[in-house]
Design a protein around this nucleic acid. Structure first.
Length: 633
RNA sequence: GCUCACGUAGCUCAGCAGGUAGAGCACGUCCUUGGUAAGGACGAGGUCACCGGUUCAAUCCCGGUCGUGAGCUCCA
């Protein structure tokens, strides 16, 4: 028998091969699994090689993963106890929970969840040992066939020939699974099933619909409750809820997928757009406005008809189809073709903010995040091949300025050639190489997403990280060698010959609607002063100060401050409460004393009462505080 | 688009087991003129999403449509 050497947290231990991790040393409390040379294993798994060994607990992400995965099995076992005819699909661990897809003879509702939870707690109380079985393909097929698990049989058929087939048993329950798992069910101290929904078997909408049950689990009740409180907190930030509360925007069933911008929301929207507009003007972009309805021939030429038809809003008039634009690129190509272009004209940077329409499937709509009518800070750069590098640099400059302004860190992902790509392979390879060079030259950390590029070219996607740590894809920069071909775009080069330009599609905010939704959640509705829909609210103590309040309002308004007076006949505490809930950054309390002394009593949203200050002084200060970041006027 | 759930006043929600609806906030009028997070009284406001069915009778039961939510799928 071979002797294996282990390094257990610095302690050297040697044992015969086949020893179980739990027998190496005294198992630390709350051990969920072990980590041996980069592999996570059951504590009861016979070890076949030595090396570094660590015990995993709930504090380790790999440990949590095992914990949630076993929780999914627990769920499946409970469901099988309640519905013996249920058939198991798959049940993985998630970032902070787990789910199991199960075929059931009848639909399930959330009202059934407590019953299932109770059955799960029974199994926890039984503290069943969880045992790993290794099976031959025939044994596995026979086992799951006998148990009526047809989906499992399907999975077994797809397991490669050389792979080990394993299953895990706890009590009467067996599940096909590569593991690892907890040693016993009693470790799952607290659990909660959170929701139930449908999911297609193997994610294909032609397959049967399974019932997907989501849940989460923790070692103890306290951690579970802390987690559930966090979820409640995130719900309070939901932009749809805050949008209505703060009177920013609403949706109505008369126009699904389109936003009704209220005056306040539109003020934020316009400020955001203006920020982008001024930034782009400074970076050499020209803003244009092109048509939003085109004859269908244009979409045929651009390739949208073949690749994007389902998402086009179509209009059928006088026996001719026309389509609302989902993107600006074809219009910009037509503009490019409208005159003879010289190499001296390049790079030619066209920006546009006009409305775009995409027919999203009804189930895809989601507040401001996924709409059918929206606007982008869209631009197309027509460049010579030798300018790609520098222009991509410029785009990343803009990304950096914008995301720093909103205090959002970001991550970059390079997406490469998909299977259904168009164009020449050599062009693709060259383009992908160029993008990597730019990223490396900028010293940006990036990930590669293989085969996730657009069919016309590789792309860089930027993911902004918000204050809850969630990632949102906003900015994108996509190289395009296809569209210039389709539109036969040309410029006259230095040598007098016609050459084909390269296009770069790019957006920094992406959809302005969506970006605003992200900002609402990021700031929890408390926009920084320059973005706030109402920057200053004046609160007269009594109606004797109304004239003075209106005088201040006029002074501020003339200097571009978004200001309003709370003229209602209410006590000051009431007005303050309402202004505070409306998340107005600055409140000016004005009473008799202030009027006599020509002062205002400033209250800030964050810091509360700031005391009296001369009116003239306040006016000059506040103008600085609401200035658009990065601009001097 | 698919699965499940939901749709009652501008908003948040109640409405037991079929008998044509109720609260708080917001809104209006009046009283109150109050210095840093809710002063008081009174009032107006609803085709119970829409269409159809069952029933003596439907907000409630059944079917369909629309919308919303969660998830799936999709997202050049």
């Amino acid at each position: 028998m071979a002797i294996l050497q282990f390094d257990v947290n610095g302690e050297q231990v040697s044992r015969e091969a086949g020893v179980r991790a739990r027998d190496l040393v005294r198992l630390p409390p709350q051990t969920l699994a072990v980590w041996v040379n980069g592999q996570t294993l059951d504590v009861d798994r016979p070890l076949t090689e030595g090396g570094q060994l660590q015990f995993l607990t709930f504090a380790d992400s790999a440990g949590r993963h095992v914990f949630r995965h076993s929780s999914a099995h627990l769920l499946a076992q409970a469901v099988k106890r309640l519905w013996p005819e249920a058939k198991l699909g798959t049940g993985p661990a998630l970032e902070d929970g787990f789910y199991y897809d199960i075929w059931l003879p009848e639909p399930l509702t959330e009202a059934d969840l407590p019953r299932i939870e109770a059955a799960m707690r029974d199994i926890v109380r039984e503290n069943l040992a969880i045992e790993r079985l290794e099976l031959s393909r025939e044994e596995a097929l026979a086992l799951f066939h006998d148990r009526g698990e047809s989906f499992k049989e399907e999975i077994i058929a797809r397991i490669p020939d050389d792979a080990v087939i394993s299953a895990y048993r706890q009590g009467e329950f067996v599940d096909l699974c590569s593991g690892p798992h907890l040693p016993e069910t009693g470790l799952i101290g607290a659990l909660r099933l959170t929701q139930v929904s449908g999911a297609y078997w193997r994610g294909n909408e032609k397959n049967p619909m399974m019932t997907r049950i989501y849940g989460t689990s923790f070692p103890d009740q306290e951690s579970l409750e802390r987690y559930l409180a966090q979820i409640e907190e995130a719900k309070l930030r939901d932009h749809r809820k805050l949008g209505a509360q703060l009177d920013l925007f609403t949706f109505r069933e008369e126009a699904p997928g389109f936003v009704f911008w209220h005056a306040k929301g539109h003020a934020v929207y316009r400020t955001l757009e203006e920020f982008s507009r001024r930034l782009q003007a400074r970076h050499g972009y020209q803003e244009v406005a092109t048509p939003w309805v085109y004859r269908v021939g244009l979409w045929e030429r651009s390739g949208h008809w073949d690749h994007y038809r389902d998402n086009l809003f179509l209009i059928d008039r006088d026996d001719e189809l026309q389509g609302l634009k989902p993107m600006n690129c074809p219009g910009h190509c037509l503009l490019f073709k409208g005159a003879t272009r010289s190499y001296r004209d390049l790079p030619w940077r066209l920006a546009e903010y006009s409305p775009l329409s995409r027919y999203e499937r009804s189930g895809a709509l989601h507040g401001l995040m996924r709409v059918r009518g929206f606007h982008q800070d869209d631009a197309h750069l027509f460049v010579r091949p030798d300018q790609i590098r520098e222009e991509m640099f410029g785009v990343l400059d803009l990304v950096d300025i914008v995301y720093r302004t909103f205090e959002m860190p970001y991550e970059v992902v390079l997406s490469t050639r998909p299977d259904d790509y168009m164009g020449e392979l050599a062009l693709w390879e060259r383009a992908e190489q160029e993008l990597e060079e730019v990223l490396r030259a900028r010293g940006l950390k990036y990930q590669i997403n293989p085969k996730d590029g657009a069919f016309y070219g590789p792309k860089l996607d930027v993911y902004a990280v918000d204050s809850l740590g969630r990632r949102w894809q906003c900015a994108t920069a996509q190289l395009d060698f296809q569209l210039p071909e389709k539109f036969e775009l040309e410029y006259v080069d230095q040598d007098g010959l016609a050459k084909r330009p390269v296009m770069i599609h790019r957006a920094i905010l992406g959809s302005i609607e969506r970006f605003l939704g992200i900002l609402v959640e990021h700031y929890k509705g408390a926009f920084p002063p320059w973005l706030a829909p109402v920057q200053v609210r004046i609160l007269p103590i009594t109606d004797k100060q109304l004239d003075y309040a209106r005088h201040i309002e006029r002074l501020l308004s003339e200097r571009g401050v978004r200001v309003e007076v709370d003229e209602r006949n209410q006590k000051i505490g009431y007005k303050i409460r309402e202004a505070q809930l409306a998340k107005v950054p600055e409140m000016l309390v004005v009473g008799g004393r202030d009027q006599d002394n020509q002062t205002v009593s400033l209250r800030s949203r964050e810091d509360g009462d700031r005391g009296a200050i001369a009116l003239t002084q306040y006016v000059s200060q506040v103008v600085d505080r609401i200035r658009m970041p990065g601009f001097t006027d």
